[in-house]
Design a protein around this nucleic acid. Structure first.
Lengths: 106, 106
DNA sequence: TTCATATATGTCAAAAACATCATATGATAT
DNA sequence: ATATCATATGATGTTTTTGACATATATGAA
């Protein structure tokens, strides 16, 4: 472990919220500006901006300003191997933890 | 992305807590029972048990019962490449986000 | 069986994270 | 210069997460 705990907390915490995860999934299809994200997901604008800020802070998205628009791009270099790793992990160790309806079991 | 969002939320949420991260870091040195973890980190027993349960639920640790003791083992197969990925990511994109004193900047 | 040790579980108050509201900033168009 | 659109920021009430306490369970010892 190279970094301090606050760094890991920032990183994992940024990915542990359902709205942020939905934004991430959406951005896998390509860069989008804020309003496009709002429309695609039915989210309120300020909520999206707040969450994009958090994702940007941990390097998960990058922003490109185009006039009054701001296009957000997903950091594929990280997110692709990360999701592969977790998919493999969850398939192997935790296929039981989440029910089809999305609720966890105990 | 193979799994549903609740699965990712469970996984990342389990790793986004400083006490759980400390437990993970400690277990990298080898399996420990609950009381050993408490003593090593100065944590209270029930807090450790609660957090170990959460880490177990997402497959990050495994438990081996030995009499009245329960030894917890870190899932190195996942944690090692995961931490490598994040170290590389944070070095490249976010070396600025955390100050030497551990506080984030804005 | 009774006691002590090791750990887990249920409950709840405090703390943290969150979404929303109100507002500010910044850019383009008129 | 002002209006409008796109997005960001600050404050706040609400929800969620968390750790601590009380207690339960389970194992081994006496």
């Amino acid at each position: 472990m190279k970094h301090d705990m606050a760094t890991y907390e920032l990183f994992f915490g940024s990915l542990s919220n359902p709205n942020r995860l939905q934004i991430i999934i959406l951005l896998r299809a390509g860069p989008k500006n804020v309003n496009e994200i709002c429309l695609a997901l039915g989210f309120e604008q300020t909520m999206v901006s707040h969450n994009l800020k958090r994702l940007e802070k941990c390097g998960m998205v990058m922003v490109e300003v185009q006039g009054k628009f701001r296009f957000y791009t997903l950091n594929m270099k990280t997110i692709t191997p990360l999701m592969e790793l977790i998919d493999a992990h969850m398939s192997m160790y935790c296929s039981h933890v989440v029910h089809p309806d999305g609720k966890m079991c105990h």
